[in-house]
Amino acid sequence: MSTQVISAAKQMNLFFRLQEAWRFRNVLLTLAGREIKIRYKQAFLGLLWVLLQPLTTALVYAVIFGVFARFQAGEGVPYPVFALVGTLFWQLFARSLSAGSTSLVSNAGLLGKVYFPRVYLLLAPMLVAVFDFFLAFVVLIGGSFFIFGLPVSIGLLVIPFLALWTILFAFSLSLVLAPLNGLYRDVGLTIPLLTQLYMFATPVMYPPSIVPERFAWIVDGNPAATLMALSRWAVLGTDCPPVYAIALLLGIPLFFIAVGFRVFFRIENTIVDRI
C-alpha cells in the first residue's frame, strides 16, 4: 500500500518527484496517445498533414529565397533540402513551445479533476511533435536524398539527439511560460508573435552566410541557430558551427531547465486555483 503525504510545509524533493514521475509514467504515454488520436480523429487527410505542413513551407522558402533571391546554401547543396531541414527542426521547436506553454491552460479541466505530475501535460504534446518530426523527416529527407541524389552521411545519426535537444530547449522555456500563461493570458497571446520574430532572427529559411560579419555573434549565441546549423551539417555536410556556439547550445537549455523547474515546482501545486 502506498503512502502519500500531502503537506504545506515541505516542498517535494527531486528524488520524490522522480519517484512520482515513474509511478505515473503510464499517464505520459496515455496523454500523448490521446493527443495523437484527437488530432487525427476528424482530420480526413490524417497523417498526410504531418508531411504537407513542412513540405509546403519549405517549398515556399525554396522558391522565394533559392529561386528569386538566389541565396546560396553552400557548395552542391540544393536549396529545397536546405530549407526543408530548417523547416522540420523549426516546426518541431515552434510546435513544442506553443503546445507546451499553453498546455496547463488548455488542460485546466483535467487539472481540476485528477492528480498526476503536472509536468506531463507539457511533455505529452512534445512527444507527439517529435513523433511527427521523425515521421516527416524519414519520408521527406529520404525522398529528397533520392530526388537530388545526395550522399548519405554518417552524420545523420546525430539527428535523433538534435531532435531531442530541440524539444528539451522548448521544454525548458515552457516550464516558465506554461505557469505564467496560467496567471496571465497575455503570455499565451504573445508567444506566437515572439516565436515568429525568433524565427526571423534564426537562419531557418535563409543561410547564416548572408548575416553580416558584425552580427555573427547573434547567430552563434542563438541555440536555435546552432541547432539549425548542426542539423544541416549532419544532413548536408555544410559548415559546422563554432565550438563556443555548441557549448552555448548545450548550456542555455540546461540553465533554463534548472530555473524552470524551480518556478514550475513552486507553482504547480496551486496553479489550478489561479487558472
Partner: peptide, 23 residues
C-alpha cells in the same frame, strides 16, 4: 486537497493507499 488537485497552505494529510476521487 485530499485528491492532490491543489496543495494546502498549512498542515498536512497522510493517505495510506490508493485514492480514487470523483470531483
Amino acid at each position: 486537497i485530499l485528491s492532490r488537485i491543489t496543495a494546502p497552505t498549512t498542515g498536512e494529510a497522510i493517505l495510506r493507499g490508493r485514492v480514487g476521487s470523483l470531483l
